[in-house]
Amino acid sequence: MDSRIGYVIGDFIANVVLGAVVGLLCWLIVGPSWNMWIAMFLMMAIGSFMGLVGFFVVARWLGAMEAMVPLMFTGELTGMVVGMAVPMMPFTAVQGLIWGAGCGAVAMVIIWIANALLSGVTRDGQEARHG
């Protein structure tokens, strides 16, 4: 993964902002009387879609896969966590923003860790783990 500071900061900000937006959407869409499982799966799907929309917004600056994968992951994770939380407890718009932003930050850290684990070189027939 890119260690150039502009990309590190850009990726992080994009994911935090997307998480906040999806968190707010969860608060707007999901009602307190909803079944939490339905809310979770619906918001995961909407969150992934919002990640895709976010990708088209930032791709020009942050690149292709390096932007798309984290943003879709952030959308999915935020939809899952906040979508499930809204029916379970009293939830405000500000909480939606903060929880969503937190999910974006966590998603980005998970991507960095996953990338550190998967990155590197395999040689001469050791590549069976690659797609």
């Binding site: 896969m65 998967l118 590197g120 070189v121 395999t122």
Partner: peptide
């Protein structure tokens, strides 16, 4: 295949 290098994830 002689080498595969993951640039971003896999």
């Amino acid at each position: 295949i002689t080498e595969v290098r993951n640039v971003f994830l896999d």
